[in-house]
Design a protein around this nucleic acid. Structure first.
Length: 618
DNA sequence: CTAGGGTTAG
């Protein structure tokens, strides 16, 4: 840098070219020094270039330095004010950005078209965006920027994203000229607030839908748990010939992951490979998640290995993937590897690792991890962390400790926490505590059918048939509908759904005959229906009938008639698997030499040769 | 120097 100190024939040109190349704070300080010496810093153009370079620099303290410089400059113009407002907004200091804007106004510094987009980005990041946004709205109108499309679009977006779709829509309707960004911001605003019908309405009216419009609809569906609809939008987008980019594919893959739609997920993966797209962290993350949630753990691992830039979400997706496959040890090893790689866990990572401990019965490891949340990660355990920990202890039969943990929680336990305890009580047959907690749960979530079922199961397990029935009756009287168990199986790219005793499938007759055939074979192998979990006091024969047409079984039977012998059968269930279906699946995997991959509400069961990957601990 | 869409758990 010695050359900087020599007298310069054309100081302005020289400084300008250095500023373009230099991004580290030390270098910029030297350039600043030279500019002071040559007097160049008094000139607005080079001074604003220096300011912009400081704001761009990633080094610690460069923003502070920029602010100090800005305060001392006498030749401040609108460009410089804009630059500083943007820097503060990007630097996670939105309040400071707004304060700076107020100073700008009180000094009567004029706006220009660039001011409002920066300022409104800061407004959007404020804890309560609305009052500031409304004031800025006033300024925009007062100073004649209302027809400036950047300002109006920025304003529309802040309203839409803060849930004020009404205000956003008013603006939308009054805008003299709307471009694609206007439409997309409005559509996205509706979709993000869960108002999908409104989003859809505008979407249909939009003439030139681009990849952003489609992605907004796909994401909107995903966020409202309409995963099938999300994939329908994605499919339609292909038909319309709109090329998907990484963000569109990320959204679509999220839907595949939730559905367990392996075929569509693979199709998207192929799309990515064909176009040689780089796996950025978000795409790597959802690909790992999709393969893991579709039961293809090896594939998930191989994506994980090839994702170059692994942020905490990518690690977490892999850890969670191992966890749901019951590979607790491996999940914790990966957690350790992540820490060694210098990636800090967040609360989701810890939740996933605790889940791993719970599913694999690793009590000591769970305890140790729970303690490290405060001691090492500088976080306070969230209510989810407590819930996981209650599950770890409870599943392992340590009910007293689980209860103590709930009583020492620094906040009110939520339904998930009590739910974990109630489940543990049922498994370990502590009926007194179980009934107490079960009743509390119903009071806490009277609209949740699962809570009534939870109490009814505990009562049934205890043999209190009458009370069990009363609980179910209470549910009906309150108009709460039991969530029907539903299993889906994906065959050749299309998803077939079944509920208990389903006869709605076009091939229902064949499916039922096939199941009867399988059942005869299983009986020969010594199968007896296991009906301990049944909530009703029925004769043995009736009990077998009651579990005999569970949705899992129908899905398996359909798998038998529609796939080649020996191929894997993949089933996704919306609730937990019942004990009888679990036992039947084990037996089928042995007798028919079929691998069955069953994803239930919480985790995977991979049945091979008579055993399950969950080791019957679930 | 300006505005729009994506990731992990429960």
């Amino acid at each position: 840098m010695a050359a900087l100190l020599l007298p310069l024939p054309r100081p302005q040109a020289a400084c300008t070219s250095w500023l373009d190349k230099c991004s580290d704070l030390d270098g910029l300080k030297q350039i600043h020094a030279t500019m002071v010496k040559t007097g160049l810093v008094l000139d607005a153009v080079p001074a604003s270039r220096l300011l912009a370079a400081l704001c761009r620099s990633p080094d610690d303290g460069s923003l502070t330095y920029a602010l100090l410089l800005f305060e001392r400059l006498r030749c401040r113009n609108t460009f410089m004010w804009n630059t500083m407002i943007r820097a503060l907004s990007d630097g996670n200091l939105p309040e400071q950005a707004v304060i700076l804007y107020c100073q700008m106004r009180s000094g009567a510094m004029p706006h220009n078209p660039y001011t409002f987009p920066f300022l409104l980005k800061a407004c959007a990041a404020l804890p309560s965006a609305l009052p500031e946004t409304q004031q800025v709205h006033g300024h925009i109108i007062k100073h004649g920027f209302a027809s400036e499309v950047y300002a109006a679009n920025s304003l529309l977006r802040v309203y839409a994203r803060s849930g004020c779709t009404g205000s956003a829509r008013k603006l939308f309707d009054r805008m003299p000229c709307r471009d694609a960004i206007t439409w997309n911001s409005m559509i996205d605003g509706y979709a993000k607030s869960g108002r999908l019908e409104m989003a859809r309405q505008l979407f249909d009216l939009m003439e030139e839908k681009n990849v952003v419009s489609w992605t907004s609809m796909i994401t909107g569906c995903v966020e409202s748990c309409l995963f099938k609809e999300a994939l329908e939008f994605f499919g339609e987008m292909q038909v319309m010939g709109v090329e998907a980019d990484a963000r569109a594919l990320t959204s679509a893959l999220t839907a595949c992951a939730h559905l367990g739609a392996l075929d569509q997920g693979r199709w998207i993966h192929t799309y990515i490979k064909k176009r040689q797209m780089q796996l950025d962290p978000a795409l790597g993350c959802v690909l790992v998640d999709m393969y893991a949630k579709c039961g293809e753990l090896d594939e998930a691992l191989s994506i994980f290995e090839t994702t170059r830039e692994r942020n905490v979400a990518v690690w977490t997706a892999m850890i969670a993937g191992l966890a749901v496959h019951g590979l607790g040890r491996e999940a914790l090893d990966l957690f350790k590897e992540m820490e060694e790689a210098g990636v800090k866990p967040n609360h989701i990572t810890v939740t996933s690792a605790l889940t791993a401990c719970s599913y694999a019965g690793m009590v000591e490891e769970g305890r140790c991890l729970f303690e490290r949340i405060t001691r090492e990660y500088n976080m306070s355990p969230s209510v989810e962390h407590y819930g996981c920990m209650v599950d770890v202890l409870g599943r392992a039969g340590m009910l007293k400790e689980a209860e103590d943990l709930i009583n020492t929680m620094p906040f009110d336990p939520n339904a998930a926490v009590w739910g974990a305890l109630a489940n543990a009580c049922r498994i370990h047959r502590n009926f007194e505590l179980g009934k107490h907690v079960g009743k509390m749960l119903i009071e806490l979530e009277p609209e949740q059918s699962g809570r009534y079922i939870q109490l009814a199961s505990i009562l049934a397990a205890e043999g209190s048939w009458t009370q069990s029935l009363t609980t179910r009756k209470l549910m009906r009287e309150r108009g709460v509908l039991k969530l029907p168990g539903c299993s889906s199986i994906s065959v050749k790219g299309s998803v077939h759904e079944f509920v208990v005793g389903d006869r709605s499938h076009p091939q229902a007759e064949k499916i039922h005959l096939e199941w009867a055939r399988i059942l005869r074979r299983l009986r020969k192998e010594g199968y007896m229906a296991s009906t301990d979990e049944l909530l009703l006091d029925l004769e043995e024969e009736e009990k077998e009938a009651a579990v005999g047409w569970h949705s899992e079984k129908l899905a398996i039977a359909f798998g038998f008639i529609s796939t080649e012998p020996g191929t894997t059968i993949r089933i996704v269930k919306n609730l937990r698997v019942c004990a009888d279906c679990h036992a039947v699946s084990k037996l089928i995997s042995k007798v028919y030499r079929r691998r069955i991959v069953m994803r239930d509400r919480a985790r995977f069961h991979v049945f091979v040769d008579g055993t399950c990957s969950c080791k019957d601990y679930w």
